[in-house]
Amino acid sequence: MRAPLSALVLLAAAATPALASSEAEAAAKPGLLDPHLGLMTWTIIVFVLLMIGLKTFAFGPILEAVSGREQAIRDAIAAAERDRAEAAKLIAEQKAAIEAARGEAQRYIAEGRATAEQMRNELLEQARKQQAEMIDNAHKSIEAEKAKAIAELRREAVDLALAGAGKLIGQKLDAAADRQLVEQYLTSLGGK
């Protein structure tokens, strides 16, 4: 119990320096537990100077450099992260663009195909119509030619018949009346 006791005294002495000096005077020869005011003062002086010195010349710069380094690493990581995100974004954008382009191309192709189809159909239709028209025209002109030919033929035939019959009956038949007769006859024979 003596050591803690005297140490307690010492602490009290340290707190109240007036006591300490009397204590120091009382113990003339150095003991293990004697406080020594000079040494305490020196400790404070050396410690405070050392603290200021180290803070200014060592810890401050070192910690600053370290935090600078940490900052640099953090920045680098952040930059890498950012770059990666950016790259990912770019890739996504590119992919989207490609996708869009592909869609567009698809659309163009489909559109082209549709247009072509339509055009073909139209052309076909037109051609068919033209063809039909041409056939129609041909038919018509054939018909006309045929009618003309038939009429020609019929007149020719009437003429021939009249001439034949006139020769046959030796007299010239009355042209108009006879002609009507023959024609009636021919008509009765049929349309052709």
């Binding site: 007036a18 000079g38 050392l50 010195g53 180290l54």
Partner: peptide
């Protein structure tokens, strides 16, 4: 207070230690 600031063995060690550390 009467403070005896004469260097003692431990004061010198304080100086040396502080200088060395610094």
């Amino acid at each position: 207070l009467e403070i005896d600031l004469s260097p003692t063995k431990h004061v010198v060690m304080l100086w040396i230690g502080a200088a060395l550390l610094f």
